[in-house]
Each structure stands twice: as structure tokens, then as C-alpha cells.
């Protein structure tokens, strides 16, 4: 029997987020050839993004483009997306495991009385069932799970599925939907302070330059920022650095921070505590810079440099600049 999958498209700074194409790829990997995959795009002034999205292998795009959707509000978004779900009746819903996805997926799952698997990193089909791989204990172990019944909800960890490519078929049809919000709004968004505007998102970054207590001050992050910027990457941190007030908790990587899987992770002045390793040991290549040759971070690093980070990081920036120019 043919199924319908729905992906919730996300955007940021006027662009479709990479994780949207990754969620689409996840849906493709879970699907059979007669399944339909549609998308819903929600925001304000996002029509051009719907056109862009229509080039991807989707059968339909539901467009919710209204002023009230300018910023994410759990109440308005849940009501509007809930409305779409009632009409589309998807068998599977795919969302990025992002700030928005983490918040809205369980609300929609509850509405649908559906099971949810969060933070999925791989999908495989065996006979008739679809297996979803996801980390537990912040990646200290992995599990493969199945759903007992339809419908189901999946959140997809950024950076783990290859992004779906555009299709050469005619563009997907775009259906404009007008939301009908019945209940009075209880939640209002007063302000959004963009601290990350224009920067590469930590969970989506291909390169992360991360600093620990060894960075010693907020200023000490400067050489790391420079290297990250050169490589088009993002800056992360250990809890040690966050606790010391050198940077925002939003940068924290680890068991109680973000779990990241970049292609290159450069740990500078980070000892490699088990809670930190939990958040980054899925990175493809790990580079450690630490002046203590006994630091546990070297046990997981592919390449280690024993030395003062304030000497090593600028040297690396210099060398990378040579090959990039």
C-alpha cells in the first residue's frame, strides 16, 4: 500500500536549511517507489523558498506563508502544522532534530498519537520493516528501532544523511494554505535575539574548532574563531570553557550540550572528559591540540599535536590559508 510521508522544511536567514534536504533524504531512504513525499513550508515571506523546494523530488508543497509565522511560536506552529497533518494524514513525518524540530515533533506526535524516534542518524530497510538507528547515552551506545504502527514521527540529526539532490522531473506543485486558528493565543514571542546570525550552525558545521578551559579567556577564543572562519566552520566549546564564562552555553558540546558530527573536529585545550567525548566522538576526523601529552583527548584523536594552542592554532590557520588560496 502506498504511503504518504511529509517533511517539515526549515529555513534560516532566508535560505532553506541543509537539514531540510537531509530530512528529505531520510524520507526517501524510508520509502518505497510508490510512496508519496510532500513537504510543508511555514514562515513569513517564504514563497521564493517554496519555488526553490519545488525542484526537489517532492509530489506537493504545502505553503503556510503568513505574518504570524515570522518567528517560531510553539502554539501557532503546532496549530497550523496540526491542520496540515489533518488534511494530509501522513504515515510518516520527518523533521530536523533542530531547535524547532525538537520542540514541535513531540507536540505533533502527541496530536497524532504517534510514536516518535528522535535524533535518527541512519535508516535501513530490511524485508518489510524500516530500521532507524539512533544514539542513546549521547552516543555511548546506539540502538536500532522500528515502529509498531503508523503514523510515525522521526527527527533527523543534522549532518548524518547526505542532502537530497534536485530532481529532473517537473517541479512539485505548491498549494497555499491559509491557517485557521480557532483558539486565542496564549503564548507571545516578544523578541528574538540572534546571536548566531550569519554564522554556521554548530550542528550543521562541517568543521568545528572547539575550545576548552585551556583557552583561558573569552579573548582566547579569537584565534579559534579565525581558524573556524577560514574553514567555513563553527566554534564550539567544552563545558569547562562555558562554566568559566569564556563563552556562551549555546556552544557547549557533550553529553549535556550539543552532539556534533562534523567532518573535522579540532579540540583545543580540551582534556577529553567522558561527557565531552560523548558529544563529538562521532566526528569523522578528530584533531587534538593540548600541551599535556597525557590528556585523554589524544586517545580518541586521529591526529594530535602536543603544544601550546596559542602557538599551534595560528600556525594551522597560516598553513590552511596556504592550501586554500
Amino acid at each position: 500500500m502506498s504511503r504518504t510521508f511529509l517533511i517539515i522544511a526549515e529555513h534560516r536567514d532566508g535560505k532553506l536549511r541543509q537539514v531540510t534536504m537531509e530530512a528529505l533524504q531520510a524520507a526517501i531512504e524510508a520509502s518505497e517507489h510508490d510512496d508519496r513525499i510532500s513537504a510543508v513550508l511555514i514562515g513569513s515571506g517564504v514563497e521564493p523558498l517554496a519555488d526553490e523546494l519545488s525542484a526537489y523530488p517532492l509530489s506537493e508543497i504545502h505553503l503556510l506563508d503568513e505574518d504570524q509565522f515570522l518567528t517560531y511560536n510553539p502554539e501557532t506552529y503546532t496549530a497550523a502544522l496540526g491542520g496540515i497533518i489533518e488534511t494530509v494524514r501522513p504515515d510518516g513525518l520527518f523533521i530536523g532534530h533542530t531547535a524547532m524540530g525538537r520542540d514541535i515533533a513531540p507536540a505533533l506526535a502527541a496530536k497524532l498519537q504517534a510514536g516518535q524516534l528522535s535524533d535518527v542518524i541512519a535508516i535501513e530497510k530490511i524485508d518489510d520493516s524500516v530500521l532507524f538507528t539512533r544514539p542513546v547515552y549521547a552516543g555511548k551506545a546506539l540502538e536500532k528501532k522500528t515502529f509498531a504502527q503508523y503514523p510515525w514521527v522521526v527527527t533527523v540529526r543534522p549532518n548524518n544523511f547526505i542532502a537530497a539532490s534536485r530532481s529532473d522531473h517537473p517541479p512539485a506543485s505548491i498549494t497555499r494554505v491559509v491557517s485557521t486558528s480557532a483558539t486565542p493565543l496564549r503564548t507571545i514571542v516578544k523578541d528574538v535575539v540572534r546571536k548566531t546570525s550569519g554564522k554556521v550552525d554548530l550542528t550543521e558545521a562541517k568543521v568545528i574548532v572547539s575550545g576548552g578551559r585551556g583557552v583561558k579567556s573569552a579573548d582566547g577564543f579569537k584565534p579559534l574563531e579565525e581558524l573556524a572562519e577560514l574553514l567555513g566552520g563553527a566554534v564550539g566549546a567544552s563545558r569547562g570553557a562555558c562554566d568559566a564564562g569564556y563563552c556562551d552555553y549555546a556552544l557547549q558540546i557533550g553529553q549535556t550540550g550539543k552532539v556534533v558530527t562534523p567532518e573535522i573536529y579540532i579540540a583545543c585545550g580540551i582534556s577529553g572528559a567522558i561527557q565531552h567525548l560523548a558529544g563529538m566522538s562521532g566526528s569523522r576526523v578528530i584533531i587534538a591540540i593540548n600541551k599535556d601529552p597525557e590528556a585523554p583527548i589524544f586517545k580518541v584523536a586521529d591526529y594530535g599535536i602536543v603544544g601550546d594552542l596559542f602557538e599551534v592554532v595560528p600556525l594551522l590557520t597560516q598553513e590552511f590559508r596556504k592550501v586554500l588560496n
Binding site: G115, E143, K144
Partner: peptide, 16 residues
């Protein structure tokens, strides 16, 4: 609504 089919440890990262 969900069932676990398998539980396993990630590949050990060898020191480089």
C-alpha cells in the same frame, strides 16, 4: 509505539 531491534556500541575510536 516503538520497539528496539538492536543495541550496540559504536566502533571504538583508536588513538591515531
Amino acid at each position: 509505539k516503538t520497539n528496539r531491534a538492536e543495541l550496540f556500541l559504536p566502533p571504538v575510536r583508536a588513538a591515531g
